[in-house]
Design a protein around this nucleic acid. Structure first.
Lengths: 137, 137
DNA sequence: ATAAACCTTAGAGTTAACACCAAGGTCAAG
DNA sequence: CTTGACCTTGGTGTTAACTCTAAGGTTTAT
């Protein structure tokens, strides 16, 4: 299968497939006479693995590791795989907490602001950001 | 006050202050004879405004808008300010939801994996990522 | 035979918010 | 008078995951 067919069948761009090749995530099985990249069902499955891993939040760098392990499964342990997963989980949770702090601050600011058409001279949002004691949180 | 003094008093780098100047967030009040940037208390307050806005999750681009409004308050309405705040709030919430989906998937994957020292041949995480019906969510 | 659709490489551009570097000028203290 | 701390500009580097462009070769359908 040529790059365009694989791309279309998975809903990604050909650029993405070439990018993944460059970054050692998916190597075509070979080249046609004209130099075109050729892919088999095996590569298609690997690309699906990549897409599923992306869908659960793994970065391409994580996925590289996971692929390495997947390809040589019996040389690796469950522990390794779980470790990668847990690390990502912690990272995601930390980011969620940071964003939740933002959410708290922003929703409080928004709640206290009348949001009307009057001049912003006494806007509570601006005041909060200006003043030392403006409650931004 | 010179750039280094302002920077130190606010816990930012001089690079940051120059960057903000380039991006129209904070312009020094003038230059000394030697060409050094000079700042007044007014600029210091503006920088604090910027830092507080950053702390609640606004991007520098948002802050540009907010500053514009703050500087010419009576030509703008509360509505505008609240609109910026609400837009950011929606964006933050959307990002949180995306990350929470990641969190769900990752924690389920992690829970089902034994994480032991045995070979990854039958690792449930890898299996989930490989199979069409592998429950990644 | 030619046009449309596909493929190739290499490289630049995108976004955010800085950090870092080089080469040089300035200022205060001892 | 010299050392060290500070300042200047202009430029490059960082991270992630692509996207786009240019200039050209290939295949397929009519």
């Amino acid at each position: 299968m040529k790059i365009g067919e694989l791309a279309k069948s998975l809903g990604v761009s050909t650029d993405t497939l070439r990018y993944y090749e460059q970054h050692k995530l998916l190597t075509p099985s070979g080249r046609s006479e004209a130099g075109y990249r050729m892919y088999t069902q095996q590569q298609r499955r690997q690309m699906q693995f990549i897409l599923r891993a992306k869908a659960v939040g793994f970065s391409l760098k994580d996925i590289q590791e996971l692929l390495q392990i997947q390809i040589e499964k019996h040389q690796h342990s469950c522990e390794e795989v779980k470790e990668i997963t847990l690390q990502k989980l912690h990272l995601v949770r930390a980011r969620i907490e940071e964003l939740q702090r933002f959410e708290q601050s922003l929703s409080k600011l928004a709640q206290r602001c009348c949001g009307g058409p009057e001049s912003a001279d006494f806007c509570s949002i601006l005041t909060a950001l200006e003043d030392v004691d403006g409650t931004c949180n």
